[in-house]
């Protein structure tokens, strides 16, 4: 396993390096942060001085070299706008987004997978129709709309939950449901189709013919195989939840990293954009490695050393 993991990790580091380098170049192509940074009536001299102070007058290659040296030391410089270390800006909001993403992921697993299994087992029944309808609505409804709808019903009309902010557990419920909406619907449909495919296989018929209990057939034989296809998608979903929480964070005033990155892109706050993208890239890569490892446990045929 180690012989597989080490090259995989090295490959992942290369991926992160390429992504961050692309972000470095891309963020400098989208515009000049100093126009937004300076006072409206600032003189040209003041603007030039600010560019000089932030190293933006250096040749691009020098800026890139300084940037890479900073990355190696985990020193990304200060945010152009808050004047706080860019790493602190991102890390102080990271836990809020991770918390939201994990809560949404738990909901996807807890709702999407069981209902998908149930719909597959009761194919064509009323529960199956309802599940498919919910899945369709869940995937078709934009999450900002779902968020506003939930706020209207559960906060304004019923008064059960707070509309926004990050206080206690009750603040987490609606943002997590909103963020999980699309993913749960997708997981439901994928689980259903995966289960239907597995259930039609010969080995399931054989298992049933052997007289195994339905529960055993479904849990040990069908679900385990159906989940193999799902797990890759779930891994991507978990990674996307972190990067895709911006809208939910805006609607629910959730003080997370998504909103910070969005604002930083608007303001061309290069240091924060770079840290944010680095964090997301590392997150994606880490999830992918975890998915690879999980294959090893779920399917003995897949040997991470290359054996089948």
């Amino acid at each position: 396993m180690a012989s597989h993991l080490i090259p995989r990790v090295l490959q992942s580091i290369a991926v992160v390096f390429v992504v961050v380098s692309l972000v470095f170049v891309g963020s400098r192509l989208i515009g000049d942060p100093i126009e937004a940074y300076s006072a409206r009536n600032a003189t040209q001299e003041a603007i030039d001085a600010a560019r000089d102070r932030l190293g933006l007058l250096d040749p691009m290659i020098v800026q890139y070299g300084n940037f890479l040296w900073g990355v190696l030391r985990l020193d990304f410089g200060d945010s152009i706008f808050s004047e706080q270390p860019a790493w602190d800006e991102v890390s102080s909001r990271l836990w809020a987004t991770v918390q939201l993403s994990l809560a949404a992921f738990v909901l996807i697993l807890a709702v999407g997978v069981p209902i998908g299994v149930l719909a597959a087992l009761r194919r064509g029944s009323v529960p199956d129709l309802i599940a498919r309808l919910i899945a369709l609505v869940g995937q078709a409804m934009p999450n900002f709309w779902l968020g506003l709808l939930l706020i209207f019903i559960f906060a304004v009309q019923l008064g059960w939950l707070p509309t926004s902010g990050r206080g206690g557990f009750e603040n987490l419920i609606m943002p997590a449901i909103t963020l999980a909406g699309f993913g749960a619907a997708a997981a439901m449909r994928l689980t259903r189709s995966g289960m239907l495919e597995v259930l039609s296989n010969d080995y399931i018929r054989t298992a049933r013919a052997k007289g195994l209990a339905d529960r055993t057939v479904i849990l040990r034989h069908a679900m385990r195989n159906a989940l193999l296809g799902l797990i890759t998608v779930l891994g991507i979903m978990l990674a996307q939840l972190l990067a895709g929480s911006i809208i939910v964070e805006v609607v629910f005033a959730w003080p997370g990293v998504g909103r910070l990155i969005f604002r930083s892109i608007t303001l061309r706050d290069f240091p924060v954009i770079q840290v944010g993208v680095l964090v997301i890239a590392v997150w994606f890569v880490a999830i992918n490695i975890l998915v690879d490892i999980s294959y090893n446990f779920l399917d003995p045929r897949i040997r991470v050393g290359g054996e089948t």
Binding site: G147, L148, G159, T163, S164, G165
Partner: peptide, 18 residues
């Protein structure tokens, strides 16, 4: 002062008495 960027959510917070 509370930061609620989305206008609809700001109005909802007012209606909910928050």
């Amino acid at each position: 002062a509370r930061l609620i960027p989305e206008i609809g959510a700001r109005v909802s917070a007012l209606e909910a008495g928050e």
